[in-house]
């Protein structure tokens, strides 16, 4: 495999609150022979602003995203929803801004932006990434991974190839956990009602670890599980795939 040059878009949320996830992406991709770069000028895709109705506030972030990542051949994102924000919403924001130059720049960069499981399976062509994780786990397919960018069963194919893993099906897996960005605050009661059902399904599996491709959804479900002292921890897919027998997570 010739060295693939990859730009890591850590996402502002992971960068600030969950640094172990982008660190795991670096470990994993370097193990698979990639050269990983982290352009320091990166900040945020603007998703929270866009989805709460603050389109005008999101436009400068779109501009910054294409400036930072425009020159790379591949951009890897450890988040389904941030990938969705770039691929499905940046073009509309550029159109709204009435800036044809920005529109063209967005159009050029978006096909090169990949969610982690897409990059591994489609670009690198691997499902067995050499990981070792001897734990009982269950996987929650986050809504934007599933229905916005349509990663399909790629994360599950990657997890099934992990040595030692005991992967059990999550009941009603495809139902939303109730996070929904600012929905979690603006409609906290409904959000918690949905999250409680998701947490119950997680507990029914007997898994010790809940895995997903979005730390935002995991912070919501994990926050509920932790409040219940449920004895289930949450982990990003990248961290499980980065774990090896020599260097466990």
């Amino acid at each position: 495999m010739s060295a693939v040059r990859v730009a890591l878009f850590a996402t502002c949320f992971n960068d600030t609150m969950w640094p172990s996830t982008p660190k795991a992406v670096v470990t994993l991709l370097e193990r698979l022979g990639c050269t990983v770069e982290f352009p320091r000028a990166q900040t945020c895709c603007g998703q929270m602003f866009t989805n709460t109705g603050y389109a005008a506030e999101a436009v400068p972030l779109v501009r910054s995203f294409v400036d930072v990542f425009g020159s790379y051949d591949a951009v890897v994102v450890p988040s389904g929803s941030c990938t969705g924000s770039v691929r499905e919403q940046h073009a509309g924001l550029a159109r709204r801004a009435g800036d044809p130059g920005l529109e063209a720049a967005v159009e050029a960069v978006t096909p090169k932006v990949h969610e982690l499981s897409e990059f591994l399976v489609d670009v690198l062509g691997v499902t067995d990434v050499g990981a070792y994780f001897p734990h009982r786990v269950t996987y929650h397919p986050t809504c934007h991974s599933l229905r916005m960018i349509r990663v399909g069963d790629r994360p599950l194919r990657l997890l099934r190839a992990v040595r030692g893993i005991d992967l059990v099906d999550l009941p009603a897996a495809e139902e939303c956990c109730g996070f929904g960005g600012t929905f979690a605050m603006k409609n906290a009661d409904v959000s918690i009602a949905m999250g409680s059902d998701k947490a119950r399904h997680v507990r029914e599996t007997g898994a010790e670890v809940l895995i997903a491709g979005d730390n935002s959804c995991l912070a919501h479900i994990g926050g509920l599980l932790e409040r219940q002292r449920a004895g289930v921890r949450t982990m990003h897919l990248a961290e499980v795939l980065a774990a090896t027998e020599e260097d466990p997570s």
């Binding site: 809504c143 929904g180 960005g181 600012t182 949905m194």
Partner: peptide, 8 residues
Amino acid sequence: YASTLCGA
């Protein structure tokens, strides 16, 4: 705002 934008 009465939606998580889950897309179902």
